[in-house]
Simulated scan of single mutants.
Amino acid sequence: MRIYTRTGDGGQTSLRWGERVPKNALRVEAYGTVDEANAHIGLAVAFLEPAGAGPLRALLLRVQRELFDVGADLATPPDRERGEQPRVTDQMVARLEADIDELERGLDALRNFILPGGSRAAAALHVARTVVRRAERQLVSLAEREPVDPALLKYLNRLSDLLFVAARAANRASGQPDVIVEWGKRS
């Protein structure tokens, strides 16, 4: 099988069930941004130190698989029969909440804003978090024009929270402290 099809050379792509849309359609932008976030999470996984990060690695790999479900749901036009139930569910959102609670148990209470960064894995997770926030904004814009499954919005909202906490956990696993924002301090 060839990786190239030439069907997108004119600036269009196919949604699920074959409907052709411009590559800059909001729906395509949203699932493309989800794919971008997934790639940043993969980078974070590659940066995780082998010792002490096993559970975090497993959690992030599960999230990466779930993001393919998010993309599949987004690639299904709202006016087309899905042929199956949506892949992203409120139960998945609840699981992210439980994951956040579990990760937070191993962290110091957060009383200040922190700078995004620290270890390479944490920095990549902070980038992924901001990309997920962009996907969420795109999904809100899409929802203003056509029906969007509310579970998708909830999932992306909760995922950005999880990635923030996961970045802190990655710093902790690598022995890096979170850097507190010191307002007005320049150096």
Rank of each mutant, 00 (worst) to 15 (best):
I3K: 13
Y4Q: 05
T7H: 09
G8P: 07
G10R: 15
G11E: 00
Q12G: 09
Q12V: 14
T13F: 09
T13M: 09
S14A: 15
V21N: 03
P22Y: 03
K23S: 03
K23P: 04
A25G: 01
A25V: 00
R27N: 08
E29N: 13
E29V: 15
Y31S: 09
D35W: 04
A37D: 08
H40D: 08
I41T: 08
G42A: 09
G42E: 01
G42R: 05
L43P: 01
A46P: 01
F47C: 14
L48Q: 02
E49P: 00
G52E: 07
L56I: 09
L56Q: 08
V63F: 02
Q64H: 07
E66F: 02
L67W: 03
F68M: 07
D69M: 01
V70H: 06
G71N: 05
G71Y: 05
A72Q: 03
A72H: 02
L74I: 12
A75F: 12
P78S: 04
P78N: 04
D79F: 10
E81R: 14
Q85S: 15
P86C: 09
T89S: 14
M92E: 03
M92W: 00
L96N: 06
A98R: 15
D99C: 10
I100V: 15
I100K: 05
E102N: 12
E102S: 14
G106F: 07
L107H: 12
L110W: 05
G118N: 07
G118F: 07
S119T: 11
S119E: 03
A121T: 00
A124S: 14
L125I: 09
A128T: 05
A128C: 04
R129T: 02
T130V: 08
T130E: 01
T130N: 01
V131M: 07
V132P: 03
R134T: 13
A135Y: 01
L139A: 07
R145F: 03
P147I: 06
P147A: 14
D149P: 08
L152W: 01
L152P: 02
L152R: 02
L152Q: 01
L152F: 01
K154H: 14
K154V: 00
Y155F: 13
R158D: 03
L163V: 02
F164K: 06
F164C: 07
A166P: 01
R168K: 09
A169D: 02
A170P: 06
N171W: 11
S174D: 14
G175E: 10
G175K: 10
G175S: 10
P177I: 03
